[in-house]
Structure formats: structure tokens, C-alpha cells
Design a protein around this nucleic acid. Structure first.
Lengths: 155, 155
DNA sequence: AATCGATAGTTACGATTGCAACTAATATGC
DNA sequence: GCATATTAGTTGCAATCGTAACTATCGATT
């Protein structure tokens, strides 16, 4: 309760970042230790695995809110591991369709098992009511993102 | 809807990060342009300004979920700008109490005006119901953080 | 079809980051 | 009271990141 009436603890960017950071770190430790995956790599793998159809790098970026250079580097790393392949698009050769290989899909499935465990842990920690509220709130933000969705550079 | 039953879009770390990134970037652009502040610097300033009492670097880190090296560097930068001073603690000389200077406080007040505007913008975008749900959900997470609060390294 | 603008993706480079190791001080066990 | 562990904060260094600039391709205008 500052004298000027601004309440940092109610400021959404600050709060969201705090929560996101906390929640992400605990999970990152797991896939980092077991698979030597970086965060952008996991997120790219997850995006591709979850849709189960080829996506372009731009689509991956939009899905996961990552900068295009992050995506580009993550894709290269995953390709080198032979967890994904690039397929040129006929008709528009600027695009490449990214697709998980068998090995990539296998890794994805293993990682989602970890993720599901972690989600259950979070459910227990946060409680059903809290998780439901959070889900509703995040949906509201996601709708809002759809309305704006212009700024593409990170900072 | 993946065949193995894992739903990435319902996975809390992924969702939270997406929302936090989106919301933070739009605000970061503002204080970066006007004050050449980095994110850790703004967050340190905000933590110190909001409590209106001296805090140690460790407390700042806990308050804002930042790694201690980030805090250390942000504190040095703010000190060089003469926006804060360090005061040695009597009794335990490992600690230093960080305190905003007049100039630092002035900057904080100016920035909270920007922050309040941005919060109003978000309120309008997300809607009252969504914001209320989000607040409830984030509170649940914050309570959960309090329960665990062990892992201190970032990844 | 030539030009201009927009888009997909990559990369060089400077800035930022996190890990690990460090200094300095305090706390604990014996 | 001495050795050892722990904690606060800093720093060297390698890795990662974002910006801006780049290549390559496509679409639109004329």
C-alpha cells in the first residue's frame, strides 16, 4: 500500500511474471537434467508434438510466444538431434513445414508424461478452485492477445 | 487434443509463460524507451519503491522472483544512476539495506503512473470478470509458492 | 515483366544471462 | 575457541538472447 496509491502486488505484468517464472523453473529443471533440452527447444518440441501436424517456424513462434530467432535456433538444434525434419512447401518456397521424426515423437511422449505429473503436482498445490480461476483468467488474456497481437519484438 | 491425452494448451507453465511474456513485453517497451531501464532494473526499482522501506538484495530477489546475479547487477546500475544507496547493516555486515534516493523515488512515481495506465488498459482488454478470475488464480499460486519456495537457481 | 513492398527464415554481433567459483561474514558443532 | 557449514553478495566466463541486417521468395502495382 504505497502512499501514491499504486499497488505493485496488483500489477499484472509483475505478478504474472513472478508466477510464470516460478512454475516454469521447476519444470525446466526436469527436462534439462534428463534430456539436455533448452527452454526454447522444449517449447518447440511441445508445439509440434501437441498439434500432431506439420507447422511452420512462424506458427511455432505464434503458438509459444517465442521470438523468431529463438525458434530458428531451436529448430536447428532439434534437427541436428534428428528429432524433426524440414519439408519444403510447394508453391511457396519461403515456408518449411516442420515435422517430428519418430524419435522426436517418442521424446515428446516421454516428456508429456513428466509434464502431466508436474501438472498434477501443481493441481494439488494450487487447489481445484484456484486452478479453475486461473484457467478462466488465462483464457480471458488469450482472447485479449488475439485482439491485439501486433508487437513482435521482444525486450 | 493429442492421442496420448496430454493437452499442451492446458499445461500451466506453457500458458502462464505465454501470457506473462505478452503482457510484460508491451510494458517493457514503455520504460525502456523513456528511461533506458532494463527489466531487472525496473523490477528492482519497483520492489524498493512499493515497500517504501529498505530491503536487502535477497529480499528484492524473493519479491520479484529474480536470480541473485540479476539483482546484483540491477542494483549496481541503479546505484550508478544515483537512484538508490546501500547502507551497511550493523550486527550482520553481510547484508546491505537498499534504499531509493529522492531521484529514485521520483522515477518510481513517474513509472507507476505509466504502470497504472497500462493496468487500466489491461483491465479494459481482459474484462472485469477475467481480471477477477486471474487475480484469484494468481493468489492461489502465490500461496503455493510460499509452501514450496526452495529452488533458487534459474534455468 | 520490372519494380517495390512484404514475408519466412537465418545470422553477425553486441548485450544480457546463469552457472560456478569466489570473498567476506555469520552460525553451528564439537 | 576452532573447524566447518551456511548465507549475502560479486564476478569470470561461456552460453544464450535480441536487434538489425541480410538472403530468398512471393505478391501487387504498373
Amino acid at each position: 500500500m504505497a502512499a501514491d496509491g499504486f499497488e505493485l502486488n496488483a500489477f499484472l505484468p509483475y505478478r504474472l511474471n513472478r508466477a510464470a517464472e516460478f512454475v516454469a523453473l521447476r519444470f525446466a529443471a526436469q527436462y534439462k537434467a534428463r534430456y539436455q533440452l533448452t527452454r526454447p527447444e522444449w517449447r518447440t518440441l511441445a508445439a509440434l508434438g501437441s498439434t500432431r501436424r506439420p507447422m511452420t517456424a512462424t506458427e511455432v513462434g505464434a503458438h509459444s510466444a517465442m521470438h523468431k530467432t529463438k525458434v530458428s535456433r531451436a529448430v536447428s538444434a532439434l534437427e541436428e538431434r534428428r528429432w524433426l525434419t524440414r519439408n519444403e512447401n510447394e508453391g511457396d518456397r519461403r515456408l518449411e513445414h516442420l515435422q517430428l521424426t519418430k524419435a522426436g515423437l517418442r521424446a515428446y511422449v516421454e516428456l508429456t508424461a513428466l509434464a502431466a505429473n508436474y501438472q498434477a503436482e501443481l493441481d494439488a498445490l494450487v487447489g481445484a478452485a484456484g486452478m479453475q480461476a486461473l484457467t478462466a483468467g488465462l483464457e480471458a488474456i488469450e482472447r485479449a492477445i488475439g485482439k491485439v497481437e501486433k508487437p513482435r519484438r521482444e525486450g
